[in-house]
Write a protein that binds this DNA or RNA. Sequence first.
DNA 1: CAAAATAGTTGAACTAGGTCAAGAAGTGTC
DNA 2: GACACTTCTTGACCTAGTTCAACTATTTTG
Lengths: 190, 190
Amino acid sequence: MTLSNYLKEKAAFTNDELKIISDSFSEVSFEKKSMLLEEGNICRHLFFITSGLVKTYFIDRNGHEVIINFASENWWITDIHSFEENKASRLYIEAMEDTECLVINVQDQYALFDKVPKLERFFRMLLQKHTGALQDRLFEHIAATAEDRYDTFLERYPNLQNRLPQHQIANYIGVSPEFLSRIRKRKVKG
Amino acid sequence: MTLSNYLKEKAAFTNDELKIISDSFSEVSFEKKSMLLEEGNICRHLFFITSGLVKTYFIDRNGHEVIINFASENWWITDIHSFEENKASRLYIEAMEDTECLVINVQDQYALFDKVPKLERFFRMLLQKHTGALQDRLFEHIAATAEDRYDTFLERYPNLQNRLPQHQIANYIGVSPEFLSRIRKRKVKG
DNA sequence: CAAAATAGTTGAACTAGGTCAAGAAGTGTC
DNA sequence: GACACTTCTTGACCTAGTTCAACTATTTTG
């Protein structure tokens, strides 16, 4: 199963631990355009994506979609605030392709932390990485140009460039689709 | 001691646990303008500020200071990436007022986690909150105006407004000092 | 395979915010 | 109490990125 392989690569779990972890998750499928989470609901699951592609976004005060991130194979996704604290979410998570996930709920997650304490630390590390990535993105929005942000997007998600419509990329890097089109034109010319 | 009071307010630690925790930290003082951390160094400490005020910033590719956040009484501060993974930091942490801290190093932190497992979970929760705040800040930079960001700053740090020079606030919200001056002028007029 | 929807391009006019320069007000500090 | 230093304001000009509108691909769907 993909989750075990993923975990084996990332940290030193024993086979017993891997089995306990795997057994705690269940498989769920989502069709393209279906929602894993909608604003106002409590996010009941932590998702591990085994195939497909999703986006997380929220709707800003002007009614515009603002994309927070994309997640494809071997990524974790959830609204951690909503998930851990049982609060209504402000976010949407939507499948952009047919998507297969492994899911776990909060109680089972905490039960699993008790059985495999290493996993809680692993998740804390993941969260740290995520926080670092968020910080970098914030820096870019404060101190870099739209073109720089586009370049970073290409580096960070090299495999997503062709799976995503261009206006979704524009949204993610925080520019209008028209302007991204111009950036790309400029880059081709060198 | 302030740390115990703080922890008592935030989560259900026993007196024994509070004592073990307190004993693991040592006191350090920093004069105004001195550095708690400089770029290129490994961040050896997690700091808990008992009095004073610090800022965390990095230097962008144009040589400009970009302020990530401020921290005053009862805030935790560190470069978590550098601290946990023993990596050179990209950040500076500087005292903006004479500042008193309680500090702990990584090894002692992990030893403490073993003695008081509740604390590791508490720190994970803190990190989650921090991540949420970062995400909100990113949203604002993507979807809100400089004036909105200024309003949010005033809400988030009501007590810092008068302790900080205006150009530092401008830096934090990501605008030029001149433009913040204009925003404020506009607001006074209503 | 035609119709409809969605995606991408281009131009023209506009705006939020930046940069530069100069002066005014405060604030150390010897 | 004068000197330097830092902070804040204001004006004039500049630029990155937006908005709107029209046109052209390209997909999707019946």
